[in-house]
Design a protein around this nucleic acid. Structure first.
Ligand SMILES: [Mn+2]
Ligand SMILES: [Mn+2]
Ligand SMILES: [Mn+2]
Ligand SMILES: [Mn+2]
Lengths: 236, 236
DNA sequence: TAAATAAGTTAGGCTAATCTAACAAATTAA
DNA sequence: TTAATTTGTTAGATTAGCCTAACTTATTTA
């Protein structure tokens, strides 16, 4: 089934919104916000996607992806993250520049291109933002993780991913000396507004709750797909 | 000016048709054939492109690209050929597979991507089909060349490009043992139907006039951008 | 040069993706 | 449990890119 650029984006948004909210069933308005269109527009498209068997949904009910819809959405994510990795690893893009270009590249239709790109990059498991890249079968590594705001004062952790992929946020992350796999010490937290003082590679910074909510961390002994050897670890 | 996928294809077709025919001014029907649409459709688009200052044309007159239109069309060609080179050189695509994917990739909007890709490929001057790749300034290497059908019986030459980029033709070229920079000896030619007997790396094959019209060749002493040291050379 | 043919244009219609405005159903609060 | 609010749907319009059928202009050919 050859889908349009737009149809693909609706499927991807559905997967992303349900993943981010933690709830499988998604509403029309929610989806409209995520796609920067009006609810009426979403409603039209939903009818078409239902017709094609890509979403399950009844009038006034919640929306979920069908098995086929989810497969396609996952494939789009796979392409997006492979392209981000390519741009970052091979073309010297910085991690805040890759997303917008990948938004375009993810819609190129060529199975061979995706497989060859995957091989060229040596089958990467994570993209430049720490997000897992689905493999040919749609499987991905699940990382047990918390946000930086959940880490106790006095504790330390390792950054493994970012939640917000916007250029402005990512540039800010770099500014406080942070990058993937960096150690973070949480020195103190304000009662009143939850402002955190953190230390990264000797550099101390004050960051907001909002900032800390968008940084994913694990215990610094944690390894992907394994049980953490640290018996005190509260992440896995 | 951010153009649509379709508008870009019209500009590219205009450049290609005028280049292939050797005549700058192009007609509505000609363009329609090349784009697989109807003349009426071309007419609609022409009005829009004229409005945007990308083509010069008056009702019932011939069509030419404006300076701006030509610049954009050349940039699309640059992207197309860089992507073909990437697929061929880095992702193990064969030369008959690259064109269709490049037709999609040429529409990705990112100046940085193009420049970085160019650098990653070490600023290639020719694509896998022997076509010149315009540089950042839109300049390209012009190769003096003839078609294989113009070579005299008993003569020899070197293949430098193909005219037809279709998968079926390119596969046929490989089948007779030919590739870029291979030496070809023209052993004989039939009076009646111009069937040629050629020899490539010791392999003899009979090829049609149509085939020979689509193979571009030079003298085997010729080098791009230089005057051939062979005083007998009839190519440059 | 007049008729025939080719080339180009116009009018009107279709579909995909979007919108606004009005309406209907479901949920929440009083 | 009614009223208010939120959420979702429908009807009707718009734009880009395409079409067919009918028409007009330009070019050939007799
Ligand atoms: Mn991204
Ligand atoms: Mn990412
Ligand atoms: Mn090509
Ligand atoms: Mn080419």
């Amino acid at each position: 089934m050859q889908l349009s650029y737009t149809e693909e984006n609706y499927l991807k948004a559905l997967l992303k919104v349900s993943f981010d909210s933690g709830i499988e069933a998604v509403g029309t308005n929610e989806l409209a916000i995520s796609l920067f269109v009006k609810p009426a527009t979403v409603n039209d498209m939903l009818k078409k996607l239902k017709e094609k068997g890509l979403v399950d949904y009844e009038k006034y009910g919640k929306i979920t992806l069908s098995a086929e819809g989810k497969k396609i959405a996952t494939y789009i994510i796979r392409k997006h993250r492979l392209w981000e990795t390519f741009l970052y690893e091979k073309l010297e893009f910085s991690w805040d520049e890759v997303h917008d270009v990948a938004e375009q590249l993810e819609h190129i239709h060529s199975q061979k291109l995706v497989d060859k790109l995957d091989k060229f990059l040596d089958f990467p498991e994570f993209d430049p933002h720490g997000d897992p890249i689905p493999n040919r079968l749609g499987e991905l590594k699940v990382q047990f993780k918390k946000t930086l705001s959940e880490v106790a004062v006095g504790g330390s952790c390792k950054m493994v991913a970012v939640k917000d992929n916007s250029s402005s946020f990512l540039q800010y992350v770099v500014q406080v000396g942070l990058g993937l796999n960096n150690e973070i010490n949480v020195l103190s937290k304000q009662e009143y507004d939850a402002i955190l003082v953190i230390e990264v590679n000797g550099l101390k910074s004050s960051v907001s709750q909002k900032f800390a909510d968008n940084i994913f961390v694990v215990c610094h002994h944690c390894e992907v797909g394994k049980i953490c050897p640290n018996t005190q670890c509260t992440f896995s």
